[in-house]
Simulated assay, not measured.
Amino acid sequence: MGLLSSLGLSSPPPPKTTAPDRTERQKCWEARDQFFACLDKNDILDSIKHGDSASKKCGGELKVFERDCASSWVEYFKKRRVQEYKKAKLLEQMEAEGGQQLSAVTTGIDQAAKK
């Protein structure tokens, strides 16, 4: 018998090691979208940098998001939200200054592969 069980305590179950299935991913994405909608409603972009405010205003949604998604996914989605915002703002700024988006450039190798 281990020390924890002899004290009447149990250890937490081991973390899930299999990849989430389609249903679990969908549940995660829905929780993410609800959390992000709450952040948008409260004008919070970065829930990592402004964690206290995000927890205070969107605590319920955050708990569901953290429950339904792997912790690595939660961190990834939070960071990606900020990166996507910065990318969109940069593109807006470049277009306002007269910049144009470039299409993909094909190389000689690409041309040879098409033949």
Rank of each mutant, 00 (worst) to 15 (best):
S72G: 05
G108W: 02
S71M: 14
T18D: 13
G98L: 03
T23M: 10
A70L: 09
V82L: 09
K79Q: 15
K114C: 06
L91Q: 13
V64H: 04
P13D: 00
T106D: 09
L7V: 00
C58M: 05
V64R: 11
E84F: 11
L45M: 07
G60I: 08
G2P: 09
Y85D: 10
L90R: 13
R81P: 04
P15H: 02
E61T: 03
V64M: 09
Q101W: 02
F65V: 07
E24I: 09
G8H: 00
L90Q: 14
K86G: 06
A88C: 01
K114A: 11
Y85Q: 11
R81N: 14
L9T: 00
S47Y: 03
Q111L: 13
P15Y: 02
A113E: 12
A112W: 03
Q100F: 05
K79Y: 10
F77D: 12
K78V: 09
S72T: 13
T18P: 03
T18K: 11
K78A: 09
K87C: 08
Q83Y: 14
W29V: 15
T106L: 15
K78F: 05
G99V: 03
C38P: 06
T17F: 04
A112I: 03
E75T: 15
S72P: 01
K16D: 05
C58A: 09
S71P: 07
I44Q: 05
Y76V: 04
A113L: 13
I109H: 10
A37H: 12
D33I: 01
V74K: 02
S53E: 15
C58I: 04
F77N: 14
A113V: 06
Y76M: 12
Y85H: 12
D110T: 02
N42P: 07
P14D: 05
A113H: 04
E97R: 11
A70I: 06
R81S: 10
E61C: 01
R32M: 12
K115Q: 09
A70M: 08
S71W: 10
K16S: 04
G98Q: 05
F36E: 14
F77K: 13
L102N: 10
R67I: 01
